[in-house]
Simulated assay, not measured.
Amino acid sequence: MSETPGWSSPDQPSNQPQQPGQQPPGGPQPQYGYNAPPPPGAQPTIKPGVIPLRPLAVGEIVDGAITTMRRYPKLIIGAAAIVAAVTQILGLLAQLPFLDDLTAVVTLDPNSVTQEQAIDQFTSAITGFLTGTLLSVFLLLLGTVFLSGFITVIVGHAVLGKPVTFAQAWEEFKPRLLPLLGATLLSGLVITVGLVLCIVPGVWLWVLFALVTPALVLERCGVTAAFGRSKKLVDGAWWRTFGILLLTVVITVVIEWIIGLPFGLLGAATTGFSPDPAAALSIGSLILSTIGAIIASTITLPFSSAVTVLLYVDRRMRSEGMDIELQRAAGHGGS
């Protein structure tokens, strides 16, 4: 980021000169344990933004993500709501043309058609359903890539307690949009192959490359370098990274379930709680489920993106001592 010189990797030249042996006020900052509080007599924690500038506990990462959403509601919640609404509505519209074929297959009476006719209807319905689903997934991917990169920029400012506008965040993120899309597609492909071959390699790769987005956006490095940076930062802390990511997934799933439940019940009520499988494919039911998905995504997408960025910051503070550079960038270091 152009205004935050502390984000460059150790292999990149820093935008701000550093005097040999220079330390933040009070000397080197202590490296606290996994969840341990600062020991008695330790230097006061510097917290210019949403997190203290020292290695973070798990709760501090989650709290920092929530605090960022609360401090920048118009930017984060507003952008998430727009992206969720556009992707979900367009996804629904992409599936509507194939809805009749799918409903016909669900309600098909095998005694009223020949086997060949049944196979033709089934093939047509599945082809249409897959086409609509792929379009929906692609739209969701585009929206998620934009939102994750955009929120990464905002969290980068939030860590330092600096204000940021939509125009400023977009200007900083815009050059990284296409590289981030390429990196997301590549990581998705690699992880999918790992999951297909065996679940364990897929999960291992998912964790190993979890920090590609913040590395690519904040360090302004290339796609290949971002993968290397993520691997380097996760090495030696795979299980801790996995635990935080898994906790994030559990939280988002619970939020989605809580929000989606009333809309699912309303959708069932519009059909009189009919046991007919075709009832779930009614227009009213689909619209209600789409509204629920929009509301849930508005909360969960920015939360998970913010957690990922703060996890990246934590890993850099633990493995590269970046807390000192961030303190300087926030105006707490020496000249």
Rank of each mutant, 00 (worst) to 15 (best):
S2R: 15
E3S: 03
T4E: 09
S8W: 05
S8G: 14
D11E: 10
D11S: 11
P17C: 04
G21W: 03
Q22L: 05
Q23V: 11
P24Q: 06
P25A: 11
P25L: 09
P38V: 13
P38H: 10
A42E: 14
Q43C: 01
G49C: 07
G49L: 01
I51L: 07
R54I: 15
E60K: 05
I61F: 08
D63M: 12
A65Q: 11
M69E: 06
P73K: 08
I77R: 02
A79R: 02
A84S: 15
P97M: 14
F98G: 06
D101P: 03
T103Y: 04
V106Y: 00
N111D: 15
S112V: 10
A118R: 10
A118L: 04
D120K: 05
Q121C: 06
I126R: 04
F129M: 14
L130K: 02
L134D: 02
L140V: 02
V145H: 07
F146T: 13
G149M: 11
G149D: 13
G149N: 13
G149F: 07
T152G: 08
A158G: 01
K162E: 12
T165H: 01
W170T: 07
E172S: 11
F173E: 04
F173N: 00
K174H: 04
L177F: 14
L180F: 04
T184H: 07
L185N: 09
L185G: 03
V190T: 09
I191R: 05
T192C: 12
V193E: 07
V196K: 12
L197Q: 06
I199G: 02
G202H: 09
L205Q: 05
P214A: 11
L216M: 10
L216A: 11
E219Q: 15
R220N: 15
G222Q: 13
T224M: 03
A226P: 04
R229Q: 03
S230L: 13
S230T: 06
K231R: 13
G236I: 08
T241I: 13
F242E: 13
I244L: 03
L246F: 15
L247I: 09
V250E: 05
I251N: 05
E256P: 05
G260P: 06
L266T: 07
G267W: 01
A268Y: 01
A268W: 02
P275G: 02
D276Y: 03
P277R: 10
A278C: 02
S282Q: 06
I283D: 02
L288H: 00
I294P: 11
I299D: 03
T300Q: 06
S304D: 14
S305W: 08
D314G: 09
R316F: 13
D323R: 00
A329F: 07
G331M: 08
G334C: 11
G334M: 15
